[in-house]
């Protein structure tokens, strides 16, 4: 389905239907955590969520119409931001806690057992409190998450791709998701001026998500280099994309 033929309402409905299931860790280690056991839990969960994230992206109207090269570049750029914004949404009603999964709920202070992770937990908790303050609505969250994916790569995507129309399609998609977010905010009944403020406030939050993701990526790479945690499968591929880029 090409996004330009969908109304903003239809676009949002498709985003609701595209939502991935809530993932469980299943074999949560006993407390207290050690550095290795916490990192193992977090990476196992991330790997499971990543598989569902690919399925979610494919259900965003127009995403699979982009060339495969662009689909890969977008996902490898934004995967940790998407995981983090999902974590924030799950944690929004639970101040001071990070709801990684229903069976992996961490208090801020539990971050002390992994070197360097407390700073990232604090960034995530701060961004989550801001979303709580703004009373982020579910449909707004869905639009922001899709926007993170589609806006994740600032470099010309089609270099190396065989489909010159792909970047035009991506621009159309970004316009469609912007229209959808504007429509969701307008439907809330806020006065026009406050609608613009809300849009700006929500979009400004995205730079904090990007910042937390960059810090998280750096942290995960260092944990892997120090052999604190082995990284396998899809997570390894996604992490390697960032290692290669950094070099």
């Amino acid at each position: 389905i090409f996004p330009s033929v969908l109304s903003p309402e239809q676009f949002v409905t498709t985003l609701i239907e595209a939502e991935p299931p809530n993932v469980l860790l299943m074999n949560r280690p006993n407390k207290p955590f050690t550095e290795a056991s916490m990192m193992m839990s977090l990476t196992k969960l991330a790997d499971k969520e990543l598989v569902h994230m690919i399925g979610w992206a494919k259900k965003i109207p127009g995403f699979v119409e982009l060339c495969l090269y662009d689909q890969v570049r977008l996902l490898e750029s934004c995967w940790l931001e998407i995981l983090m914004v999902g974590l924030m949404w799950r944690s929004i009603e639970h101040p001071g806690k990070l709801i990684f999964a229903a069976d992996l709920i961490l208090d801020r202070d539990e971050g002390k057992c992994v070197e360097g992770i407390l700073e990232i937990f604090d960034m995530l908790l701060a961004a989550t409190s801001r979303l709580r303050e703004l009373k982020l609505q579910h449909k707004e969250y869905l639009c922001l998450k899709a926007m993170i994916l589609l806006n994740s790569n600032m470099f010309p995507l089609t270099m190396g791709s065989d489909d010159p129309d792909s970047s035009v399609k991506l621009r159309h998609l970004l316009n469609a998701i912007t229209d959808a977010l504007v429509w969701v905010i307008a439907k809330s009944g806020l006065p026009y001026r406050q609608q613009s403020n809300r849009l700006a406030n929500l979009l400004m939050l995205l730079s904090h998500v990007r910042h937390a993701s960059n810090k998280g990526m750096e942290h995960l790479l260092s944990m892997r280099c120090k052999n604190v945690v082995p990284v396998y499968d899809l997570l390894l591929e996604m992490l390697n994309a960032h290692t290669l880029r950094d070099h």
Binding site: V51, H52, G55, L68, Q71, L75, E237, N240, L244
Partner: peptide, 23 residues
């Protein structure tokens, strides 16, 4: 390495069925 080489699993997931099809 090329994008295809470094993203074998991602390519497979993008080109094949839904995540529920993949064990």
């Amino acid at each position: 390495s090329s994008l295809t080489e470094r993203h074998k699993i991602l390519h497979r997931l993008l080109q094949e069925g839904s995540p529920s099809d993949i064990s």
